[in-house]
Write a protein that binds this DNA or RNA. Structure first.
Length: 103
DNA sequence: AGATTGACCAGAT
DNA sequence: TATCTGGCCAATC
């Protein structure tokens, strides 16, 4: 798979994340077909053109931690209805979006 | 062209 | 449970 295609899939998945839900980099990479590309997901998010309007604030790491150096993300998630723990991490069990939920 | 870093993850200690 | 290490790919120095 071309890296470009991989990015395209990543962006597609991220754009499909509904309000009030979040996903992990690893999960996105997995859905994109390359579970090992978690780092590329994060890299792609940071370098994603704003014209894509990606809800990258709904993307967190496997621990539910928010993006380092981006305190605004916390406020954004709270405004979307995402409940954050006292330590500032997302309640993954409550907000981790699962595409195959109705499986 | 080689080495280092990065919005990560999983396993090991 | 918390911290460290190795590995992954791409971009930058």
């Amino acid at each position: 798979m071309d890296r470009i295609q991989f990015y395209e899939i990543i962006y597609s998945i991220v754009k499909e994340i509904p309000v009030g839900y979040v996903m992990t980099y690893g999960q996105i990479a997995y859905l994109a077909g390359e579970p090992q590309y978690a780092r590329m997901v994060g890299w792609a998010m940071f370098h994603a053109p704003k014209e894509w309007y990606l809800p990258c604030h709904r993307v967190v790491n496997s621990q539910g931690r928010l993006v380092p150096g981006w305190q605004e993300q916390k406020a954004l998630l709270e405004k979307e209805g995402v409940t954050l723990k006292a330590n500032g991490c997302v309640n993954m069990k409550l907000h981790q979006w699962q595409p195959a939920d109705h499986e």
